[in-house]
């Protein structure tokens, strides 16, 4: 019965909850409105898209101080995206329950590389958050909870594949559903809000003649 709950109604609830609440959080940001500046601009409106994409790489002056977090962060994010959308069990799950169509999955060796990158990157960042004096000082309980919950979801996913046991698969799915419910309330929402923060700042600076 628990298995049916996790595989059925709880999956539906968590997926819809994530979509509705995440969208709600984004709309509340947008509906706050932006005051219009009357100052004579240096540039025509723009700059938002450029900053959204430019920010994927650090300025050369910052490369040394951001190197470790840059590589660990990309290892985690790229690995996670690869797993989420191209790991064979996920392709099967999503094509059956969400999209109605399938797509090519990663070969097994690529899946293993992605898993190692994602797990290794996240573990490094989670430990960095605990050990670096700055991040230890500024991090909240929510920041730690988000890191370790994502880690547990990924870890149980790897175990489920490794051992091919139904209970491990259900544990992985249950934790993923908890993550979907927690996601819109957490700092994980940066995954969806980053275009706003980068874009608004880029537009403001561009107007003043500065491309950042």
């Amino acid at each position: 019965m628990i298995a049916q709950l996790i595989d059925g109604p709880l999956w539906l609830f968590s997926a819809w909850f994530f979509l509705v609440v995440a969208l709600w959080r984004l709309l509340v940001i947008l509906f706050k409105g932006r005051p219009k500046s009357l100052a004579k601009p240096r540039n025509a409106p723009g700059g938002a898209l450029a900053t959204i994409f430019r920010r994927f790489l650090p300025y050369p002056e910052f490369r040394k101080v951001s190197r470790v977090r840059f590589w660990a962060g990309y290892a985690f994010h790229v690995g996670l995206l690869a797993l989420l959308f191209f790991a064979a069990p996920h392709v099967e799950f999503l094509s059956q329950r969400v999209t109605g169509f399938s797509w090519p999955a990663l070969p097994h060796w690529a899946f293993e590389v992605a898993a190692e990158l994602a797990l290794g990157g996240l573990l490094f960042l989670a430990l960095f958050r605990l050990m670096d004096p700055v991040t230890r000082f500024i991090s909240s309980t929510g920041d730690h909870l988000a890191s370790w919950l994502v880690f547990l979801v990924m870890l149980t996913g790897c175990f489920a594949l490794w051992r091919s046991h139904e209970s491990l698969r259900l544990l992985h799915l249950f934790l993923a559903e908890l993550l979907l419910i927690y996601f819109p309330f957490s700092s994980l929402m940066h995954a969806l809000t980053f275009p706003f923060s980068r874009g608004f700042t880029g537009a403001v600076y561009h107007r003043k003649g500065v491309n950042i």
Partner: peptide, 10 residues
């Protein structure tokens, strides 16, 4: 948007 995006990366 700014306040929603900070994830305390330091």
């Amino acid at each position: 948007g700014d306040l929603e995006s900070c994830m305390h990366c330091g």
